[in-house]
Design a protein around this nucleic acid. Sequence first.
DNA 1: TTCATATTGACATCATGATGTCAAATCGCC
DNA 2: GGCGATTTGACATCATGATGTCAATATGAA
Lengths: 148, 148
Amino acid sequence: MRTPEGEAFTSFVVEVATLGHFVTAAGESLARHGGQSLARWVVLDAIGERPLTVAQIGRARGMARQPVQRVADVLAEEGLASYQDNPQHRRARLLTLTARGREVLDAINARQAAWANAHGARVGIDKLRRAHQLVADMRKLIELPPQS
Amino acid sequence: MRTPEGEAFTSFVVEVATLGHFVTAAGESLARHGGQSLARWVVLDAIGERPLTVAQIGRARGMARQPVQRVADVLAEEGLASYQDNPQHRRARLLTLTARGREVLDAINARQAAWANAHGARVGIDKLRRAHQLVADMRKLIELPPQS
DNA sequence: TTCATATTGACATCATGATGTCAAATCGCC
DNA sequence: GGCGATTTGACATCATGATGTCAATATGAA
């Protein structure tokens, strides 16, 4: 009923889910030091380079527009971002970082960089590259239907 | 500011978060074929071996008791589980699988086994073991404070 | 046994993300 | 230019998981 490969695959999947949980928690922790949350950080970071519409942010980060909309509205209320008119689209305004939003984002990203540098140095570049490749391969595999 | 190792670590973390998302979606899909959700499947599976209290389920699956309580109450309402008196603790009743709950759980687990067998066969046992080890190592690392 | 401490269930509130629907706006094909 | 399809924002509802509080219960030290 369950092959050794099936057992191993299930163990891997469970381990990945657990690691994903830890990674998310680490992200929440990093964001909290800037007085934000992971969801807010994701939206702030998305518009760090250039203003985007809510729908564009959702596509860029693999989220539906609706949750992004809610977070974006909160950020706008708090003065970390603001909606600017979009010459391309009358309704779809561009969410833009304010000066305060830039400060907050830079602070969180700086902390994240230190965190990643410290962890990365311990692992070593070779193992990191292999790990990244392995996880990326696995993702492509899980995306495929199991029958093929 | 950002070392190559830091860059690689960040890429890995983002990839893991993405894979975790896919794995969760796969779990939701498997559970849905049994008319359940991932959260309900997790609770059903936790009491598959022996009855447990809500708090025990939470600890076993790394969740707080409160969300488990809510899911458990729904399962009890739907007749997939039932609360039985606990000789060890007057208030903490044991959540127990009903016959229907057993059927549903077995069906979902059978489907998961087929899914895992098919995917596992494609990857191969060696790569799976290496991937599992790598991910487990990374988790231990992220759990440590970054300074050490 | 007694009493401080920890655990537990039962509430509440909240953040997050998914999904559905609708009308306005844009785009693309003709 | 006109018109159908798509995109978008703006609502709504829902599932999930985290957190906090409280009283009832169990546990362990004295």
